[in-house]
Simulated assay, not measured.
Amino acid sequence: MAQTVNEVTDLMSDKKDRPKRSTRLPPSAKYFFMALVIGLLLLILVMGAKALRDAPPAAIEVSHQGLTAMQYDALQQTMNQQSVTSFFTTDLQTLRDIAIDLSWVDQISVTRDWQRGIVITALPKKAVANFGTERMVDAKGVVFVPADSEELTQAQFATLQGEITQAPVIMQQMQQINEWYAPLGMRVEDIILSPRMTWLVRFSNGLRVIVDNENTAQKLLSLSQLLGNQLSTRRDEIQSVDLRYKNGFSIAWHMKEP
């Protein structure tokens, strides 16, 4: 029995002391596998580039959200004229720049959508007044040409006239005058800033006011106070007021019918 145990012990000892064998690839095989992997990666890149190049042009969809029918048609027509590449390679910034160049567009968003393609969403400018006879102006004083020319005929809008660069100043002046004269039931219907910086204002009740660029705000405010107090009973008899005086003003009255 002792002999058998010793034999087993010897066998285990021999197995423990036996040197481990490791299988090593020759250098040429390593280089072969590395070249094979690199070749596969290059093949994938080439095939991917070819697939992108040969892909059909991306579909462009203009969203109806927030747009009138005329605005939608104008934006869609502009986008249809653009040459686009595939879904992944189309330059979205270029499309955005083209859309934002439309005068009536205020904000634009261009995104990729797996289902719909390239989606363009536009936010139009909101007009608050006419500027001359062919343009409109928003609350920030930005002048633009509307997509629908029928918007120029809206009666509720006042008409501003002057240099386009002065549009923000004219808009601010109109808003201020409306605030002062609102308690009198009067609002601006036409306001003109001449090249000599003279203001001509026509109100909703027909009253016309002319004022120079010296102490303009104070003169207009004082007139609103006079019309609400001392001249309140004769307000409807006044045809026009000239405020281009340092120490007063002149009034033109309506001629009474015989």
Score class of each variant (00 low, 15 high):
Ile191Ala: 04
Met1Glu: 06
Ala155Arg: 12
Leu95Asp: 01
Gln156Asn: 13
Gly39Ser: 14
Val46Thr: 11
Val241Gln: 01
Pro19Lys: 06
Met136Lys: 06
Lys16Arg: 15
Gln71Phe: 04
Asn80Lys: 11
Val62Met: 05
Phe144Pro: 15
Met186Lys: 12
Leu223Lys: 06
Ala2Trp: 11
Ser63Trp: 04
Ser194Phe: 02
Ala2Cys: 06
Arg234His: 13
Glu237Asp: 14
Arg116Glu: 14
Asp190Cys: 01
Ser83Gln: 15
Asp73Cys: 00
Leu43Thr: 08
Leu200His: 10
Glu150Pro: 00
Ile44Leu: 09
Gly185Leu: 06
Arg196Glu: 04
Ile118Tyr: 00
Pro183Trp: 01
Asp212Met: 01
Ile210His: 08
Thr216Leu: 05
Pro56Phe: 07
Val137Phe: 03
Gly117Glu: 05
Pro26His: 15
Leu92Phe: 11
Thr133Leu: 04
Val128Asn: 06
Arg96Ala: 12
Met186Thr: 02
Glu151Thr: 10
Val145Leu: 05
Val62Lys: 03
Asp138Met: 06
Ala35Asn: 04
Asn205Pro: 02
Gln115Gly: 07
Arg244Met: 07
Leu95Lys: 02
Val5Thr: 01
Arg116Trp: 09
Arg196Met: 02
Gly66Asp: 06
Gln225Tyr: 08
Leu40Arg: 00
Leu42Ile: 14
Ile98Lys: 15
Leu102Cys: 03
Ala49Lys: 11
Ser224Glu: 04
Met12Ile: 15
Arg202Phe: 00
Gly248Thr: 07
Arg202Asp: 03
Arg202Val: 02
Pro168His: 00
Ser86Phe: 03
Ser149Ala: 13
Leu184Thr: 02
Tyr72Asn: 06
Leu40Ile: 13
Leu11Lys: 15
Asn80Cys: 03
Ala147Lys: 02
Ala74Met: 02
Gly228Tyr: 11
Leu160Cys: 01
Ala167Asn: 00
Phe87Thr: 04
Arg196Gln: 07
Val142Ala: 08
Gln77Glu: 12
Asp91Cys: 09
Arg18Asp: 11
Ile98Leu: 07
Thr89Cys: 00
Pro19Arg: 09
Glu189His: 07
Glu61Phe: 13
Gly132Thr: 10
Arg187Gly: 11
Ile164Lys: 01
Ile192Ala: 02
Ala69Met: 09
Met171Ala: 06
Asp14Ala: 13
Trp104Arg: 03
Ile238Asn: 12
Asn229Cys: 05
Arg53Ile: 12
Val8Glu: 15
Val137Leu: 07
Leu95His: 03
Pro146Cys: 02
Ser194Lys: 02
Leu52Trp: 12
Leu231Asp: 04
Arg187Ala: 06
Asp190Asn: 14
Thr85Gly: 11
Ile251Lys: 07
Thr89Gln: 09
Arg24Trp: 13
Arg234Lys: 14
Pro57Arg: 08
Asp106His: 14
Gln172Phe: 01
Ile100Tyr: 07
Met136His: 09
Lys219Asn: 11
Gln176Leu: 04
Tyr31Val: 12
Val209Asn: 05
Val37Asn: 04
Asp113His: 12
Tyr245Arg: 01
Met12Thr: 14
Gln173Cys: 01
Glu151Leu: 13
Arg196Asp: 05
Arg244Asp: 10
Leu42Tyr: 04
Thr233Arg: 13
Pro27Asn: 09
Val119Phe: 09
Gly228Val: 09
Asn229Val: 10
Leu95Pro: 01
Val143Asn: 09
Glu61His: 11
Thr111Asn: 14
Arg208Asp: 12
Gly39Pro: 15
Gln154Cys: 05
Gln173Gly: 00
Met34Gln: 11
Asp236Ala: 13
His254Ile: 10
Val201Ser: 01
Ser250Thr: 12
